[in-house]
């Protein structure tokens, strides 16, 4: 992969071959010949099918600002509750996006979700048109079931990571960070590619106000342990974005020291 700056020659020929372009590459609208230009600084990535009839090109780069794309899986905070929809914030200072109350599994006019301000949801971007408000949905389109989407438990811990790192964690099954973490503890994780991760180890962080009377056999000590493990795991995931893969083990040991 080669480093590309805005305005460079991409060296992609588009005649004879069907081309799809992804992030970082732009086709100037209204011009007849298909001239593709890079618009970010990044690493060029081209994939071709075996027959050589199709290709997909994009620039791999990191940015801190999240721009929605359809079918992105994201974590958002509810910042407004209205009769027909919720207002959701995906990242600080971004425009709010909408989540319709009908965009939940089995939702009807009578059976509607009951979410409050400040709660977080795992959702999928269902429509993104820059000129209009972005929309989210909280169910799996193919099955109509929840598919892991929906309200995120308040006993989990949400923290921010770099956007490119979040993409790698979510889409690359060969990426070892989470596999290594599973040797230390049990965890439940939701990765939003808007750079937010929801993490819960064991029973997670105890919710203040909610007393432990439901399962009274669980001691305060256990809650403290789950809390500590969650924080250690979050710390480990955050630290790994700054080191090379050989050092993951070292970071893991350091984060879980004394646990």
């Amino acid at each position: 992969m080669s480093v590309i700056l805005p305005g460079d020659d991409l060296g992609i020929s588009t005649d004879q071959i069907e081309t799809s372009i992804g992030p970082g590459i732009y086709k100037v609208p209204g011009i007849k010949d298909t001239k593709l230009i890079p618009i970010n600084g990044g690493l060029l990535n081209i994939q071709r099918n075996k027959q050589g009839t199709r290709q997909a090109a994009h620039l791999e780069s990191n940015s801190r600002r999240y721009i929605p794309q359809v079918s992105d899986m994201v974590i958002g905070t509810i910042v407004g509750v209205y009769a027909e929809y919720y207002k959701v914030l995906l990242q600080n200072f971004l425009s709010n996006v909408t989540l319709s109350v009908m965009a939940f599994p089995n939702a009807t006019k009578k059976n509607r979700p009951n979410l409050r301000q400040g709660q977080c949801v795992y959702a999928r971007v269902s429509s993104y048109i820059p000129d209009l408000e972005t929309e989210l949905e909280c169910f799996d389109l193919s099955t109509g079931k929840d598919g892991g989407f929906g309200l995120l438990d308040e006993s989990g811990y949400i923290f921010d990571v770099e956007l490119n790192y979040a993409r790698e964690l979510l889409f690359n099954p060969g990426f070892l960070v989470l596999e290594k973490l599973s040797t230390k503890c049990m965890f439940e994780i939701a990765i939003g590619i808007n750079g937010k991760i929801w993490l819960k180890c064991g029973d997670g962080v105890p919710i203040p106000g909610k007393s432990t009377d439901e399962d009274s056999d669980k001691m305060d000590v256990d809650y403290v342990k789950d809390l500590k493990t969650t924080l250690a795991a979050a710390n480990y995931i955050k630290q790994c974005q700054k080191v090379s893969p050989e050092q993951f083990d070292k970071v893991l040991a350091a984060s879980f020291k004394g646990l």
Partner: peptide, 22 residues
């Protein structure tokens, strides 16, 4: 400057951003 400085700076930034990639 474009070829020597800008390219180098962006390249080292990308290396830093993708340090966790094997």
């Amino acid at each position: 400057v474009h070829e020597d400085v800008q390219r180098d700076v962006i390249e080292s930034k990308l290396q830093q951003d993708y340090i966790w990639k094997s």
